[in-house]
Design a protein around this nucleic acid. Structure first.
Length: 417
DNA sequence: TCTGGGGTCCTAGGACCC
DNA sequence: TCTGGGGTCCTAGGACCC
C-alpha cells in the first residue's frame, strides 16, 4: 500500500467527565455522570456499568446507582478545549477541528522536528496529559477515516498506529458500525441485508449498495470499506449553520409562550451571528410535536442579513405556519402539541467589505455624521458590528487616524427597528 | 428507548429557466 | 405550443455525529 501514515486523529476520552474528575479529586476513580435529564458524558468507571452518553438519566442511575451525577460546566469545557487545541498547534498548523474534543492533524510537515508520526502522537498525548490534565486517545494512519477508526479502537487512553501494509487486515473484520455515517437506521438496513462487517460491505455490489442506501451514501460507504478515502485534512473549514433549540417539558405551552421562547432563541443566535461577523440567508424554525415527530419550516431571504428585526419577523412567520391551523391562531398547536422549538440560520456568508466614507464640515458634528453612517449600514446589513469605522481628521491636508471606533460601541445590540 | 443541544450532509419533489 | 432535456434553487424531512 503506497503512502505514509501521516494523519492523526486525536480524541479526548469522556471529555466532560474527565474535566470533572480533573477538577474535583473526590470524583477520581469513581463513576461520574455529567448531566441529569440526559447523560452528556460518562466516566469510564460509569461506562463499565453500561452507562452511555445520550442515555436517559433515570435509566443511567438504575444501571449505576452509586454514580455521582454532576451538572455540566460548559465554560470549563470550553477552556479545556482551547488549551488542548493550543497543544495541537504546537506540533502542526494543519489542524482540522471536528468538535470541542476531537481533531485531525496532518503531521507530514512536522516529522523533521518531532520525529515519526507515532512519536508525535506519543508526545502529543503526554503534553495534553501533563499541561491540561486530560487523557487523550490518538489514532495514526494514512487516511482520515482509518485514523478515526484507530483512535476509537485505542480507547481509553490509547495510541494505535495502522501500518499502511496492514490496512485491510485491520479494517475488514470490524463491524460495519465503525464506518462514519452508519448509525442505527443504516446499520439495520445493512444487517438485514446480511452485511455485518466492513469486509462484507467491501465484497457487496456497488449498484446493490446504492439502491439500498441511496446513491451517495451507498458509494461513499462502499468506498470507505474498500479503504478509499482521499479526503485531506482541511484547516479552513467554515461554519455552515448556526442555531439554538430548547426542549420543552410535558407542560402544554400556549402559542404566546412558544413565540416568546422562539424569539428569545432568535435573538441569541442573531447575536452570535453578528459576533462571528456572519450574515444568514435561510431561516429554519424547528418544531417537535408532543409525540416526537419532527417538523420544520424554512425561508430563504433575497439578501443575507444579521438584523434581529428581519430574522425575528421571518421566524415569527414560520412559526405561524407550524402552529396556526385553519381554525385560527394556535389551533394546530392545540392538536399536535410541542416538545421542542428551535431555530437554525444557514447559508452563512461573510459580509462584503463595507467601506463607507463620510465628509463633514469643520464646524459640523462628527457624531451626527457617524449616526447617519450607522443608519446606512443598519439599513443594509442590520444589527451591529459588520464593519468598523475610523474617524480620520484632516489636519492641514494630512489625514490623521484619530480613533478607530467599533460600530458596536455606537449601536447597542438589538435596537434595530 | 422517547431524553439534550450543537452541528453536518443528503434526498426528493417542485418551481423555474433556458 | 404539450412535447424534450438539463440545470439551479428552494423546501421539508431524514440520518448521523459528538
Amino acid at each position: 500500500m503506497p503512502g505514509v501514515a501521516n494523519i492523526l486523529h486525536a480524541d479526548l476520552d469522556s471529555f466532560y467527565a474527565s474535566v470533572e474528575q480533573r477538577d474535583n479529586p473526590r470524583l477520581r476513580d469513581r463513576p461520574v455522570i455529567v448531566g441529569g435529564g440526559v447523560v452528556l458524558a460518562a466516566s469510564y468507571e460509569a461506562k463499565a456499568y453500561g452507562v452511555r452518553s445520550a442515555m436517559n438519566g433515570r435509566q443511567a442511575r438504575m444501571l449505576c446507582p452509586h454514580a455521582i451525577v454532576v451538572e455540566p460546566r460548559m465554560e470549563a469545557y470550553g477552556e479545556a478545549s482551547s488549551a488542548v487545541f493550543e497543544r495541537f498547534h504546537d506540533f502542526t498548523p494543519e489542524v482540522e477541528p471536528i468538535s470541542v474534543d476531537e481533531a485531525f492533524l496532518d503531521v507530514s510537515g512536522a516529522l523533521r522536528i518531532f520525529g515519526s508520526p507515532a512519536d508525535i502522537a506519543a508526545q502529543l498525548r503526554t503534553r495534553v496529559l501533563v499541561d491540561v490534565g486530560l487523557p487523550i486517545s490518538v489514532g495514526v494512519a494514512r487516511t482520515k477515516f482509518l485514523a478515526k477508526v484507530a483512535s476509537a479502537q485505542s480507547k481509553p487512553d490509547g495510541l494505535l498506529v495502522v501500518d499502511p501494509d496492514r490496512e485491510r487486515e485491520f479494517l475488514h473484520p470490524l463491524p460495519v458500525e465503525v464506518l462514519w455515517g452508519v448509525g442505527p437506521a443504516t446499520s439495520e438496513k445493512l444487517r438485514n441485508h446480511g452485511v455485518e462487517t466492513v469486509g462484507d460491505l467491501a465484497s457487496s455490489g456497488r449498484a446493490e449498495m446504492q439502491s439500498l442506501l441511496g446513491s451517495h451514501s451507498g458509494r461513499h460507504l462502499r468506498d470507505l470499506a474498500h479503504n478509499l478515502d482521499p479526503r485531506k485534512v482541511d484547516t479552513a473549514r467554515r461554519d455552515r449553520s448556526m442555531g439554538a433549540q430548547r426542549a420543552l417539558g410535558i407542560r402544554v405551552r400556549t402559542r404566546g409562550e412558544l413565540r416568546t421562547d422562539l424569539l428569545g432563541l432568535v435573538e441569541k443566535v442573531a447575536a452570535r451571528l453578528r459576533k462571528a461577523e456572519r450574515l444568514t440567508r435561510t431561516v429554519t424554525v424547528r418544531f417537535r410535536t408532543a409525540d416526537l415527530r419532527h417538523e420544520s419550516r424554512s425561508r430563504t431571504l433575497l439578501e443575507p442579513t444579521a438584523s434581529t428585526a428581519i430574522l425575528t419577523a421571518t421566524a415569527d412567520d414560520l412559526l405561524s405556519s407550524l402552529v396556526d391551523g385553519p381554525h385560527g391562531p394556535g389551533t394546530r398547536l392545540g392538536r399536535v402539541g410541542c416538545s421542542l422549538i428551535g431555530v437554525t440560520f444557514s447559508g452563512l456568508a461573510r459580509p462584503d467589505a463595507v467601506q463607507l466614507a463620510i465628509r463633514f464640515p469643520e464646524e459640523g458634528r462628527p457624531t451626527e455624521a457617524l449616526d447617519g453612517l450607522v443608519d446606512d449600514i443598519r439599513r443594509r446589513w442590520g444589527g451591529r458590528a459588520v464593519a468598523r469605522a475610523s474617524l480620520i481628521k484632516s489636519d492641514a491636508g494630512v489625514p490623521v487616524l484619530q480613533r478607530p471606533t467599533a460600530l458596536d460601541a455606537v449601536e447597542p445590540l438589538g435596537s434595530v427597528e
